[in-house]
């Protein structure tokens, strides 16, 4: 069953001045449990597509369905709520909340969902253990390495049990060891818990681990390879 469907998605920046067509009609279906990398050269529209799939931006034409719901017409407030319930984000620059500890960061979205403290603690500890950071529960981001911060970010994205996780260049700032470590964790979570991952990446090490690789060129799907 497709968790994400894009149909004829177009995105034009500066439509009134000098229009730039970032996406020129993207049709894509991503099934539950997939481990998909969206690749392509700079300016091919990877980030734009992820922004639109993630409900952070709206298409100029076409529509996006997540779990059967058209998110392209939702209001800002409804979209915020939708993202909170259905989408986990992992950012290139980790983007953890600097004033919160690792556990509090992981709990944060669950807190926004008004889950109980006991449930939040248990889930955060379970996930931090799963990403190998059970001894860093009380550390703040500044006390963690880049790789450790990105693992906390993965745990945070997973915490509310989202429909899928979007990761924008998650390994761009990591060294080889941390990248391998992170990919192992994400692949395991994908296989063991069936979590759907969608990456945008340049990183060959990520592309090598992906089971589906969608290549964008000039705002169009150039190749869609399943392994």
């Amino acid at each position: 069953m497709a968790v994400i469907t894009t149909k004829g998605v177009e995105k034009v920046y500066n439509p009134d001045k000098i229009p730039v067509k970032a996406l020129k009609g993207v049709d894509l279906e991503i099934e539950a449990g997939e481990f998909t990398a969206i690749v392509g050269p700079s300016g091919s529209g990877k980030t734009t597509l992820l922004n639109i799939i993630g409900g952070l931006d709206r298409p100029t034409a076409g529509y996006v369905e997540v779990g059967g719901e058209d998110i392209s017409q939702m209001s800002d407030n409804v979209l915020i709520d939708f993202r909170k319930q259905h989408i986990g984000f992992v950012f290139q620059a980790y983007n953890l909340i600097p004033v919160l500890t690792a556990r509090e960061n992981v709990e944060f979205v669950m807190l926004l969902q008004n889950r109980s403290k006991t449930e939040r603690h248990a889930r955060a500890d379970e996930l931090l253990k799963a990403v190998g950071l059970e001894d860093k529960v009380h550390k703040r981001p500044a006390e963690l390495s880049g790789g450790q911060q990105q693992r906390v970010a993965v745990a945070r994205a997973l915490a509310p049990k989202p429909t899928f996780i979007l990761a924008d260049e998650p390994t761009a700032n990591l060294d080889s060891e941390s990248t391998a470590n992170l990919l192992d964790i994400m692949a395991r979570l994908n296989q063991e818990e069936g979590v759907t991952f969608v990456f945008s990446t340049h990183d060959q090490r990520v592309i090598d681990r992906a089971r589906r690789v969608v290549t964008l060129v000039d705002g169009r799907v150039d190749e869609d390879l399943r392994r």
Partner: peptide, 8 residues
């Protein structure tokens, strides 16, 4: 980021 992950 806070608004992206669901803080209204």
């Amino acid at each position: 980021m806070l608004m992206a992950i669901g803080m209204n």
